[in-house]
Design a protein around this nucleic acid. Structure first.
Lengths: 232, 232
DNA sequence: CGGCTCATTGATAACTCTCAACGCAGGTGG
DNA sequence: CCACCTGCGTTGAGAGTTATCAATGAGCCG
């Protein structure tokens, strides 16, 4: 029997395009894999050998320069798709930020399966188009926003993206408080800042009463309206 | 008879996935449109009403903040696809940088056609995946590179992207000299800099003998190797 | 209770932006 | 044919933001 029957993201991941018999066919080429926080699934520059769906946890997509500077170019959540299907090399590493569970496929197996299932490809296309939109919006932040705008935007985006799993209340409403899946350094790598600048902005937001920071990893949004004004 | 028969990008655009009879079916829902430099095809924030293939020319995809800051989030060349199929709103405007010719489709017509032609969707998926890769690489530049690295990277990328149409020599070799489809301000909007900083970097590159600038819009790469070192 | 990692805070420097003036090229009209 | 106007680009001086370097502080685990 298929793992998919109990998969918590089966209705949201690209698998939702498939009929029951197709799902079980897909399940024969996929397997579950658990990752601990900090573990990498894919490394930058290697040939694309596997793709995956995120079942649980948060992972980063990152790339860097030769001299060690790093930029996080994407963050994926449960039901998101990981990897580069249809050839080529992976241009960014994939690393778990929290303990995570993924459903991995050999890339060639997945490619073959997808080519025979247009509805799956269609879902994947929709997801990729959405990811491209999101990534382009992030470019505005990287290229044109100040440090304070960047941090405010980051907290707002995070409160929205973390809602589905964190929040048991009415769906769609962003979470008021949440646990950061990022260290300060990782936040800096998302925003194109240094760790010190991120820290100072956090302190300032706390001082201005827009947020509370009960611990390093906890954030409470006190004044969402003001935070949105800060985000520009 | 179909315009497609004489289309110069028919073998490179997503249309190349189609058989002759399918091409002529597609041609019944598409039409050519000419744009003059500066003319917009799609505006930021509007519902996605049309999509297109670029036949000739260069166009920018751009987005901005309320207070007028702008960021160019993509640049498209002949055979590239424009627009947001499958619903949603367009998150960025599309504006011609040079005089351009495009092949436009009503979005709903295109959606319907694509859903019935999996090979077309597959091509579109490949193109979208490639564009996502490229966009993410650009994020490293925006978030982590200095002004001089940004400008050097920009010139190198441009020399590669402009090659297919500009260069009659062996394919694949990047052009040594080319005409910029961008004003200084637009270069600044691509790189997340100000026009003055871009100008100073150009002057410095010229002074260091890495490039020549015969006119405002002309660039000659004199020392590609050194330029690559500058690009980081 | 150390010893570790990670985060905060401070002082200073560097880079890029801002504001301002000038230069160049192309077009228009006298 | 030259003068002028206009738009874009360059150059300069100074300010501001963020990075860098360094030290301190907080939490965690042996």
């Amino acid at each position: 029997m298929s793992n998919c029957d109990t998969c918590v993201v089966r209705n949201r991941a690209i698998c939702s395009a498939l009929a029951p018999d197709e799902i079980s066919a897909l399940s024969t080429i996929g397997r579950r894999r658990n990752l601990v926080a900090g573990e990498s699934l894919i490394w930058e520059g290697e040939d694309s050998v596997l793709v995956a769906n995120v079942i649980e946890g948060v992972l980063k997509l990152s790339t860097g320069t030769e001299d060690g500077r790093e930029q996080i170019v994407g963050v994926v959540y449960p039901s998101d798709f990981i990897g580069r299907p249809f050839g080529g090399t992976t241009n960014h590493g994939v690393t778990a930020l929290t303990d995570a569970r993924v459903c991995v496929f050999s890339r060639v197996d997945f490619d073959g399966f997808a080519r025979q299932h247009p509805d799956l490809e269609h879902k994947l296309l929709q997801r990729t188009l959405g990811e491209l939109d999101r990534t382009r919006r992030w470019m505005l932040l990287l290229g044109r926003k100040s440090a304070s705008e960047k941090v405010a935007s980051f907290l707002l985006e995070l409160s929205e993206r973390l809602t589905p799993t964190t929040c048991q209340t009415a769906s769609g409403a962003p979470a008021q408080s949440f646990s950061l899946p990022f260290s300060r350094q990782q936040i800096a790598d998302v925003l194109g800042l240094t760790i010190e600048t991120v820290s100072r902005q956090f302190t300032r937001l706390k001082g201005d009463g827009l947020v509370e920071l009960p611990s390093r990893r906890e954030v409470v949004i006190v004044d969402r309206h003001a935070l949105m004004a800060e985000a520009g």
